[in-house]
Amino acid sequence: MDWNLLVANAFHAALGLNAIAYAIAAIGLNVHFGYTGLLNFGQAGFLAVGAYGTAISIVHFNVPYLVGALIGVAVAVLLALLLGIPTLRLRADYLAVATIAAAEIVRLVIGSTVYARWTGGSSGFSGAFARTFYNWNPLPAGTYSLGPVRLTADRAWFMLIGWSLVIIIALLVWLLVRSPWGRVLKGIREDEDAVRSLGKNVFARKMQALIIGGVIGAVAGIALVTGEQSVNPQTFNTQLTFFFWTLLLLGGVARVIGPVLGAVLLWLVFSVTETVLRSGASAGWVPDTLVSESQIGLVRVALVGLGLMLLMIFRPQGILGDRRELAFNVR
């Protein structure tokens, strides 16, 4: 086996675009589920509106990059309001069905030919809409080497800003959840009637949490477009949301670092399995059909599915969680 390849692939997977976007998205989900107890199964919808809001406003309306990003965030706030006003009064499992339906509506609409003039329909669109972002790159052009790992200047710049963003968002969330505001959220997670009886406006706090987590999701979507320089409705399917859930549960729910750790580990596992399968195929002990692009995707989904089940059954507190807390988690 080519160890250098394994390390290089693992580096790109665990610290690259996907890990960054997934970590940010899952931090948002952590605000929803981990701290407030909202069962949001439509986080992919927030990423979708963030990504498309940014891409469309830059491509079709020629707004500057940062303004485009702000528009993406604004659309996410709008989606959170639209979604929250009717559903936040519902029982937790109803909210799950409503959010998953809303995310599907978003995906179906942006993928339909009806709005294809703006969205590019089912194949999405690509373009150099994040050129400004890469123009800001102070690193001299060229390739950087770090042992077996090679990075272009643009990739290095993206990772630098991406991880700074992860750290900033994680810090903000950390500040929020250890404040009295965060205490109210955690109270709502445990029993919202009790919190109501203490004179707290539960609906407003849940709405704030939904908006904040949704905006963080939109930032993940914006990171995704900036890195990929393209958008495709299929990216934002329900499976994406479930990937976030898996890595959140893996890292540890209601832990600030949980989603970050989970994202890095998830992509590390993906990358190592893929590299091992591929080198197995070239060595002849893994059938070729298993390593085609679509099959690798399947192996990932199967791993996530199995991982999700095993985690919930055997270690529901994740890596960073405290088993004691779980003893009271009767819900």
């Binding site: 549960l249 996530v304 599915g305 199995l306 999700l308 089940m309 059954i313």
Partner: peptide, 9 residues
């Protein structure tokens, strides 16, 4: 959440 995992798998 387990049903979701089972569904994906």
């Amino acid at each position: 959440i387990i049903t979701i995992g089972l569904s994906l798998f």
